[in-house]
């Protein structure tokens, strides 16, 4: 069994340094790996990325992250990525990583992803160049993530994105903005690799649980959705999907 901790949309900046940190003490007893689902910073600046690096430093378990749209706001995504990598995090951008953990070999592949919407209610690569560029960007990112997932040779595969692969975990957001919150290209990518779990963020007013058309569980771990420091999902043992949360014992 592999225990995957995950949270997204922490939107860190110097004004809220230390907001999550107190809850991360002892995370190594709760989980084997921590996934961060983007929007790590509020404005996408390097000083904010330093706060992120400090918040998630020295946890004793691997930390794997993707960036979110907020992390792109100041065109510093390269510097942010470099800084987080130097701090010891793995930052995925259409790439994958394999980790030998006590419960088995875990493969995580992912990237930011993008919007476009969901079947019957989505944008398509047609018409104006701006429209084509928007949808092509989303499709190419998803295709890269799909390939990275299929290239993993691991016991379990997890797709980690910022944007959502399914509409189900957006429930709570206004339906009119779903096309800006995710794309079914991401679910298609995950299902092409028989991913065991899809983790995403971005939809702060969405819901935690969903499923891809191929049957993979999807979890929206945006911090405002979880209201917790992180959630933990166990892979590799039979159980019930999205059981009612129980108080920690």
């Amino acid at each position: 069994m592999i225990r995957v901790a995950a949270v997204g949309d922490v939107h860190l900046a110097p004004d809220i340094r230390g907001r999550i940190r107190p809850h991360l003490a002892g995370i190594g007893e709760q989980a084997d790996v921590l996934l961060l689902a983007g929007d790590l910073t509020q404005h996408g600046t390097v000083p904010e990325a330093e706060v992120v690096a400090g918040e998630f430093a020295d946890l004793g378990i691997p930390v794997v992250a993707v960036l979110g749209n907020h992390d792109y706001q100041c065109d510093s995504e390269r510097q942010i990525t470099d800084l987080l990598r130097q701090s010891g995090m793995t930052v995925l951008d259409g790439t994958g990583v394999e980790l030998d953990l006590p419960g088995g070999r875990l493969g995580v592949a992912g990237g930011k992803g993008f919007g476009g919407g969901f079947p019957h209610r989505c944008a398509s690569e047609f018409g104006e160049p701006q429209m084509k560029a928007f949808v092509r960007h989303s499709r190419l990112l998803a295709e890269g993530i799909g390939k990275a997932l299929r290239d993993l040779s691991a016991d379990f595969r997890v797709a980690l994105t910022h944007y959502s692969p399914v509409a189900e975990t957006l429930a709570g957001e206004p339906p009119e903005i779903y096309p800006f919150l995710g794309s079914y290209f991401l679910a298609e990518a995950a299902d092409s690799a028989n991913a065991d779990l899809c983790i995403h963020g971005h939809a702060h007013a969405g819901s935690e649980c969903g499923t891809t058309p191929g049957g993979a569980p999807v979890r929206n771990v945006a911090q405002p959705v979880l209201k917790r420091a992180y959630a933990v999902y166990c892979l590799g043992e039979p159980g019930s999907q999205c059981a009612e949360p129980q108080p920690a014992g």
């Binding site: 709760q30 892979l235 039979p238 159980g239």
Partner: peptide
């Protein structure tokens, strides 16, 4: 954090 959620294989 709360109790972990066990996912169906």
């Amino acid at each position: 954090p709360e109790q972990p959620e066990v996912l169906e294989a």
